[in-house]
Structures are given as C-alpha cells and as structure tokens.
C-alpha cells in the first residue's frame, strides 16, 4: 500500500479523495462500454488513477481515421488491424500494470449486457449510438449500478450522471429513441478531439467521485458543452425523477433489456449481407439523409429506398428505417456501419 500511495500521491493529496478514497478506488471495478474516442480517454484516465479493474467492451477494428482523437492507439495498431478492445488492453497494461485490464471484442446487446456489467461499481458510456445507451440505462437501473452518460459530435456534447432511484435516469430525460437518420453522427458531421476530451473527462471525474465514496458531490444536471462556441450550460433535471412516469426507473419496465425495443440483426444467407430491423415505426427523410451522406460516398434514392455506397459496402435503407448492409456477413460490422452513417 505505501508504494501505491506514492504512485497516486497527487490524487491522494486531494483532500476529498485522500488515502481512504484511493483505497476504495483500488478496490473498484469499472466497465467501459465502447472504446472509441470517449472510451479511450476514459480508460486512460481511470487506468492512471489506479482503478482496481477495468473491463472494456468494443465491437470495432481500428481504422486510420480513429487516430485523430482515440488517444490509446498508434499507427502500428492500425497497421496490425487490431480490434480496439485488444489494442486498448495492450496499451493500458503498459500505462499501469497494477490495474486488472480486460478488453473484450463484442457487440453489446440485450442478450449479453448483463454478463458484461456483472459486479461493476460503475459503468461508463462510450458507445456511438442511442440504442446501446438505452440498453445501458435499463441494465444499470435494474441492477442499481451508477452510470455516466456522455456523447459528443461536431464541437459539442452532453453528459449526465445516473444513480438509479436517486437521480433521473436517461429515459426520465429522453423518453424514446429518435428515429434513425435524423441525428448527426461523428462519421457524418465529424467530431473534434477537444470536445471528446471534455465530455470523457467530465465522465471520469463523476466516476472517481462515485468510486471514492463521494457520490454526494456528483453532477445532478444535464451538462451541455460546446468547445467551438466556447459556451456551456447546465439544465435542471431533478424534477424528472419525482414527477415523471419513466418506464425504467418508475415503472420497472426494461423494454430495451427485454429486447422489446431496439433493433434485430439477421445475416441474410448466401448474400453476404446483413439486415437490420429497427422494430419501430419510422419515416425516414431521404432528402436530409442524402444531403449528409453525399460528401462521403455515392447516394441514390427513390421514394422507397436509399442506397449509399462506401468503399466495399453498400447500405440500403427503406422508408421505415429497415436497413440492409451489403459486403459483410458480420452482424457487428453491419451494426457499426448503420450506427455510423444512418445513426440510430
């Protein structure tokens, strides 16, 4: 313990943490879902802070365009074609060998999320889509695990801290998923590294408060931050808990965790394609979607179907949001492409 205290001395000197807080942190278990921009910043900081164990789950492989903001990775990792979870695990072990690090290559879905978060003291959101966030919310509320929402695109982002049954949950604030195809994503609208670092750092600070026994100091508002406009704002959300009729934390209905909400993915036999069914009524605005996708690849649409071609893939989406990703049989790849370009 004494040499550990030396290692973390600058954090231990901070009176709200102290030796007691550090000892708790060393005992704690954190799960980071997603290992892109937000996830790498979170993992790096929590690993250096001396979190006892870090589990990181991500479905993607590294691409060159990740390096602009995904701080744990290098050109060498990209050349090796490593999955993000594996490259992150390697790097984190170099950063702090005292931390138990586990990188898992998997698509987080309603069938496996419970096993990933089992025993977690805190979950950090680093995913790139709404659906997984609503799923995290369900599992966190069901098992009373604190979790921290964070998301960023362009130059702005949002964060809120959820302590189930004490603060509002994500569904208290955002009652349902937006329809696919209307929200900007990092792959259509771009994203600046600084906003990712701001949002991820807010999330890490929140996690450290919770893990060191300082839950009374958490952020209880919805934080909006824009690094380009140099503005930030906090919105009151406390009454959403006392006055809302949230399906998750008031009624106890976990629609995403039960697989009743959210998409289903089917590999289409012998066709090298995967179908993604949103399972909701949607009406896509092809005109808007085409405008966003044109700078990135060829787009064709008529009143029924929009086709978007990108490298070796084609994403075809129907008016109701159903998508077919051609050029892969891998559901992870298909889900990832759909989330990145159509946005769900």
């Amino acid at each position: 313990m004494p040499e550990l205290l030396e290692k973390y001395s600058r954090q231990v000197l901070f009176p709200e943490i102290g030796e007691k807080g550090q000892a708790r942190l060393i005992q704690s278990k954190v799960v980071i879902l997603g290992c892109g921009a937000l996830g790498t910043v979170q993992a790096d900081a929590l690993c250096r802070a001396g979190t006892g164990s870090l589990r990181i789950v991500d479905r993607d492989f590294l691409e060159e365009s990740n390096l602009q903001r995904q701080t744990l990775f290098s050109e060498d990792d990209v050349q090796k074609g490593l999955p993000k979870a594996v490259a992150a695990e390697n790097r984190l072990r170099q950063i702090n060998s005292s931390v138990r690090v586990e990188g898992l290559v998997a698509d987080v879905n309603y069938k496996n999320i419970e096993q990933f978060v089992e025993g977690a003291d805190c979950i950090l959101d680093a995913t790139d889509n709404f659906e997984t966030r609503f799923l995290i919310n369900d599992v966190a509320v069901k098992y009373k695990i604190p979790w921290i929402y964070g998301a960023s695109v362009g130059s702005y982002g949002l964060s809120m801290t959820v302590i189930p049954f004490e603060t509002p949950c994500l569904r208290c604030i955002f009652e349902s998923l937006p329809p696919p195809g209307i929200s900007p994503t990092c792959d259509t609208a771009g994203v600046l590294a600084p906003i990712v670092n701001v949002i991820a750092s807010i999330q890490v600070a929140e996690a450290i408060k919770i893990l060191t026994g300082n839950s009374h100091c958490i952020n209880r508002k919805l934080i909006f931050f824009d690094v380009w406009k140099s503005s930030w704002k906090q919105y009151e959300i406390a009454s959403a808990r006392s006055e809302g009729e949230c399906p998750a934390c008031q009624v106890g209905r976990f629609e995403f965790l039960e697989g009743k909400e959210g998409s289903t993915v089917t590999t289409l036999c012998g066709r090298n394609s995967v179908q993604i069914n949103q399972g909701r009524e949607n009406r896509l605005d092809f005109e808007q979607l085409a405008k966003r996708l044109r700078p990135l690849g060829a787009v064709h649409f008529n009143q029924f179907l929009l086709r978007f071609n990108l490298d070796n893939f084609e994403i075809a989406v129907f008016q109701d949001g159903r998508g077919i990703v051609r050029g892969t049989k891998d559901p992870n790849v298909a889900r990832s492409l759909y989330a990145k370009y159509i946005g769900a």
Partner: peptide, 10 residues
C-alpha cells in the same frame, strides 16, 4: 428557450 435532442456520437 433551448431545444435539446439526445446526442448519439461517441
């Protein structure tokens, strides 16, 4: 007045 939709990116 602010209109705030959820943000997806990560």
């Amino acid at each position: 007045v602010s209109i705030i939709p959820a943000i997806a990116g990560g």
